[in-house]
Amino acid sequence: MADDSASAAPPHQGVPSEPPTAGAERPPLDEDTMARAVEHGVGPHPQPWPDDPRLDPELLAGGDRRNVVDRYRYWRLEAIVADLDATRLPLRIAIQNWEHDFNIGSIVRTANAFNVTGVHVVGRRRWNRRGAMVTDRYLQVHHHPDVADLAGFLAAHGSVPVGVDNLPGAVPLETAELPEHACLVFGSEGPGLTDEMVEVCDRLVAITQYGSTRSINAGAAAAIAMYHWALRWAPR
């Protein structure tokens, strides 16, 4: 009889053959790492304060812990929005919200990072805002009760709806020429774009994949598509 132990494959080199013991003591974090983990933003602004109407006296006095880039530290919310409005990119994002999709918050946050003109939620009005990390305060989030309402809005504002889904007839995103005034449209996680939404889209694009999964997370897909659009149209 063959010796099973002799034919067993050896463990991968450099990888422990057994998981670490539960409760094993980990090396302590150094002070700098711990400080970075607990500190967010900036503290109170040193006196004298700048004479700038865009600045918020409460933030100057107490510090600014918001998730904003450094140039907007201590700025009033209204001042930040006004500054962003002056440089909005002509891109819109639409998401179908038939299943109270948890990805919407993540998509809104990414849309803020790309400073899009607006985000459009189609279907249910309520959506999980936790993933947005309050970035929905810095851009316009529109609600549309149905696909027809979205289509009418986009037509009135000269925005071309482009569906992003791996459906038959979709063009690979990396070879697609997206219009400058585009609205990238995403379906709910799982079902994807509805047939009604596909009908109103000017074209369909799909993100090329190389693994076994049929689709990727809607929030990740939105980030990829926005970045692809920005490579062509965003100023540098």
Rank of each mutant, 00 (worst) to 15 (best):
R92W: 05
D136K: 01
E58M: 10
L139A: 02
W98E: 14
V68Q: 09
A24S: 13
I80N: 01
L55D: 07
F114Y: 15
W127H: 05
D52A: 05
V69T: 11
G41L: 03
L60A: 11
G118M: 08
T87H: 11
I93T: 10
Y72S: 05
S106Y: 03
Y74E: 08
T33E: 04
R65G: 08
D51G: 02
L84H: 09
Q140Y: 03
N97F: 11
L77K: 05
P57C: 03
H142Y: 12
I95K: 03
A82E: 14
D146H: 15
A24F: 14
A156T: 10
Y138S: 08
V141F: 04
V116R: 00
R36F: 13
A156L: 10
A148L: 08
I93S: 06
R71N: 06
Q47G: 04
R26Q: 12
H157P: 00
V116M: 01
Q96T: 13
G123A: 01
N112P: 07
P57T: 01
R109C: 12
A37V: 08
E31H: 12
A35F: 13
E31K: 13
V141K: 05
I104Y: 11
I95R: 04
R109G: 10
I95P: 02
L154E: 01
G43E: 12
R92N: 09
Y74H: 11
P145Q: 08
R71W: 07
R26I: 10
D149K: 15
Y74T: 14
R126P: 03
L139K: 06
Y72D: 15
E39P: 10
W75L: 01
N112M: 10
A82I: 10
D149T: 15
E78C: 07
P28W: 01
W49F: 11
N97S: 05
T110Q: 07
E25T: 15
H45K: 02
G105L: 09
V68K: 06
V38M: 06
R130C: 07
W127F: 12
H40R: 15
V134G: 02
T87W: 01
A35I: 07
T110W: 05
E58S: 07
V134D: 15
N115V: 14
Q47P: 07
S106N: 11
D83G: 02
D101W: 14
A111F: 14
A82P: 15
A35E: 05
D146Y: 07
R92P: 07
G105A: 09
I104H: 04
G118S: 14
G63C: 02
A86E: 14
